[in-house]
Amino acid sequence: MSNKFNASSLTEYCKSYARKVAGDFFAHHTVISGQELLKLSPVSQVNLFVISSLSDKWRSDAERFRSPFFDFEHPDVRQAMQVFMNTVSQHISVRRENLEPLLADATRRTLILLFDPRHYFDEALRNQPDFSLTADAAHLLTRYTQINKFVPAALEERMKGKSVVYVNQALNWLDEILMQRGRELEKPEKYIPLFSEKVLLDPGMLLRKSSYDSLPAQPLPAATKSFFDTEVENTVIPAAPLSPPPVNGSGTTVNGTPPDPDFTVKTHFLSDTGSAEEPVAPSMQPSQATAHLSDISTLEVNPVVNEESNGPVTVGETFYRAPIESISKSISLNQKFMFINQLFNGNAASYNEAIEELNRATSYDQARDLVSYRYAAQYLWDMSSDEVAMLIDILKRRFA
């Protein structure tokens, strides 16, 4: 477990996220298929990790099917087994009670990959069987990694011509890759709104304080092929916009750029491996590379004094005390997701209607009555909650 995280907060968030995502889907379905899994979460990496878990299960089931009483190496048997397993893979059908644990684990892995990529890849390598990394395992790691994909791709590139290496060699490569290309690691900030579409993601609650302060579809193939053998086109997550750019009829974005080919995943699991070469003797010493993130400093405005602390008021405090002309425009994106999820039961339309009505109020007393006697009763709000207090503060600024 990465020591950057508050373990209990990470576990609770992952369970809540899995519960919300599964609940939204299974409110209208009884089972979910493989193609539906690929579009289940707004965060494509979460979906890929779920598929990865299913593929591991698929492979292990194929191995358990073998019996010492029959020749499973006979060409006819091998061919029949592959056709059978590939056909089974085309009929993925998962119920909610079986999906939620996979979703929670996929969410956990994605968050660690985002906020502590060094630990994620280190752990992925150390968990390889027999402390050895095979070419097939390296290829699978690349295939199911969308975020910071360049790391496993570089590892796989260094394995060319080698069928297997000891993990200590792979860890040395990992150190070199991160030291040379560490600046290419993706920023977690661009994924926070995507997670918050379902459940508000607050890094300040998720991470330990020291870590937080240092932060800067296509159709099914023929039944003779495996679901895990098909090409899966994943949605490209833009770095700057908070929602993906629209796509026109020609299949390109409005600005004419094609989808990012790096998010194409190909899978094949029943492949033969070559003979292992003699690897270098292993070492269990941990790898030495560390991630460095920029510090965040707080600006202070000297002439203004905070009445509660008798200290200078920060820029943020000055901003949040200033009067506003529009309630909706003063609510940040993270606040919006929090209000929708915590106050309006995840219903964005109800949130929009309420904000518009509050914005039309002619006085603070009228707006406060709407909150106290209408919305609180309708949505069973806890008037002492932080979310309601935050909304009330915004109303005070609106009618200041």
Results as ranks from 00 to 15, higher is better:
Glu12Ser: 13
Ala22Cys: 05
Ala22Ser: 04
Gly23Leu: 04
Gly23Tyr: 02
Thr30Phe: 03
Thr30Gly: 09
Ser33Cys: 08
Ser33Asn: 00
Glu36His: 00
Leu40Glu: 01
Pro42Gly: 01
Pro42Glu: 10
Asn47Met: 06
Ser55Ala: 11
Lys57Pro: 07
Arg59Cys: 14
Asp61His: 14
Glu63Pro: 07
Phe65Ala: 10
Phe65Thr: 10
Asp71Gln: 01
His74Tyr: 03
Gln90Val: 05
Val94Arg: 01
Asp105Trp: 03
Arg108Val: 07
Leu111Asn: 00
Leu111Pro: 01
Ile112Asp: 00
Ile112Trp: 11
Ile112Lys: 02
Leu113Met: 08
Pro117Asp: 09
Tyr120Glu: 03
Phe121Asn: 05
Asp122Ala: 04
Ala124Val: 06
Gln128Trp: 04
Pro129Asp: 01
Pro129Lys: 06
Ser132Cys: 11
Ala137Lys: 08
Ala137Gln: 15
Ala137Trp: 02
Tyr144Ala: 03
Phe150Asp: 04
Val151Pro: 01
Leu155Pro: 00
Met159Trp: 11
Lys160Pro: 04
Lys160His: 09
Val165Glu: 03
Val167Tyr: 00
Leu174Cys: 04
Asp175Asn: 03
Leu178Met: 09
Met179Ser: 14
Tyr191Gln: 02
Ser196Gly: 07
Lys198Asp: 04
Asp202Gly: 01
Ser210Asn: 03
Ser211Ala: 12
Asp213Lys: 11
Ala217Leu: 10
Gln218Thr: 15
Pro221Met: 11
Phe227Asn: 04
Glu231Val: 14
Val232Asn: 10
Val232Tyr: 00
Val232Arg: 03
Asn234Cys: 12
Val236Pro: 13
Ala240Glu: 12
Pro244Leu: 06
Gly251Thr: 00
Thr252Phe: 09
Pro261Ala: 07
Phe263Gln: 10
Val265Pro: 10
Thr267Ile: 05
Ser271Gln: 10
Ser271Ile: 11
Thr273Asp: 15
Gly274Glu: 05
Ala276Ser: 11
Ala276Asn: 12
Ser283Gly: 02
Ser287Trp: 07
Ala289Gly: 11
Ala291His: 12
Ser294Asp: 13
Leu299Ala: 14
Glu300Val: 14
Val305Arg: 14
Glu308Leu: 12
Ser309His: 13
Pro312Val: 02
Gly316Arg: 15
Thr318Arg: 08
Phe319Thr: 08
Ile331Arg: 05
Ser332Val: 07
Asn334Trp: 11
Gln335His: 02
Gln335Met: 02
Lys336Thr: 13
Phe337Gln: 15
Asn341Ile: 08
Phe344Gly: 08
Ala348Gly: 12
Asn352Ala: 04
Glu353Gly: 09
Ala354Ile: 13
Ala354Leu: 02
Glu356Tyr: 10
Glu357Leu: 13
Arg368Ala: 15
Arg374Pro: 03
Tyr375Thr: 08
Ile394Glu: 05
